[in-house]
Nucleic acid binder design. Structure first.
Lengths: 172, 172
DNA sequence: GATAAAGTTGATCTACTTAGTCAGGGATCT
DNA sequence: AGATCCCTGACTAAGTAGATCAACTTTATC
């Protein structure tokens, strides 16, 4: 469940394109690479993929560059993720609904479908325009209200390395 | 955002252990491997990891096998995922809150934290006991009520390969 | 105590993916 | 013309996923 470098880079590049002034101005790949600290050759590959998926357009030559093919409010994070990384969620190669775990493990299928739905509830709702504005949709922003969302869970291996050994200390 | 084969196998194995009759009976690794269709040597590795994390215990010898170290209602999917795959969500190697995208892309950080929160809202709530019972917690099951959760999104590349070319056909 | 079932450890292997580079070519503007 | 910039495809180096194997130790039954 990791966000790949490619997706991170592509998303940040899209935000840069959407934030370019004046709107619709072609932005050079190297310009984005420099301001976002992305390897420029690598970024060019990602932009080419986004272009094939018709999320951005490009122009060559002296005043060339990239610009959004679609208004930023119509591009979701999920759109970009699917172009760069493929399906949002799959369970070792299969789409969750095609996945049929045998016997008593059958309900794990519903679990993975719920996981996918949860991912969609964020990634299909947040648009590039939201990110440029710095304001996530209220349903998504609600997730951030819980201060617990901001803290990292301890590594389960580190937790056992130092054993205070209190029974049922604070599991869950 | 893919569920690894390892996590799928480990979760299914845990469900098998929880469902074993009578409860607490040692279950042999090969028994699980056979009933779940998991390569047995590979499964043994995963069970060893779960044992080191103290989610299961094992016994050797003629009547040996594996059993849960903790009541199934106290083991969440997230617990297993963290043992097998590491942190639930990280953005190309970094924990989301340690990730600091520069400039105009800064709000992408909140996005990834929201993604992590969404994953937690499912994976930290569903326990092995829920899966054995075949009933997910109501907050999670609610995600499955929407029939849309059960259908796969079309591949964006396939969508462009066959171009009906209607402007703004159904872009979300 | 012999035997066999079972877990334990560590090495190894292949295929794939990720992250990134490079060179050569084509398009466009000044 | 020349500078600038995008396009394509091949390429590589490192890491991970998924899986297998052999040798060893522990334990239960006969």
């Amino acid at each position: 469940m990791r966000v790949s470098a490619s997706l991170d880079y592509a998303l940040r590049a899209m935000v840069e394109l959407a934030a370019a002034e004046p709107v619709g101005r072609p932005v050079k790949a190297d310009e984005i690479a420099a301001s976002q600290g992305i390897p420029s050759r690598f970024l060019a590959q990602l932009l080419a993929e986004l272009r094939r998926a018709e999320l951005v357009r490009s122009g060559r030559g002296y005043a060339g560059g990239y610009w959004l093919a679609v208004p930023p409010a119509d591009i979701t994070v999920a759109d970009i993720a699917r172009v760069i990384d493929g399906p949002l969620a799959d369970v070792h190669g299969l789409s969750p609904e095609l996945f049929g775990p045998p016997g008593v493990a059958a309900p794990t299928r519903e679990l993975w479908i719920a996981v996918r739905a949860a991912l969609r509830s964020v990634m299909e709702k947040v648009t590039i325009a939201d990110l440029v504005a710095g304001a996530l949709p209220s349903a998504v922003a609600a997730l951030l209200d819980d201060p617990d969302a901001w803290i990292r869970r301890p590594d389960p291996l580190a937790a056992q390395a130092d054993p205070p050994d209190q029974l049922g200390s604070d599991r869950r």
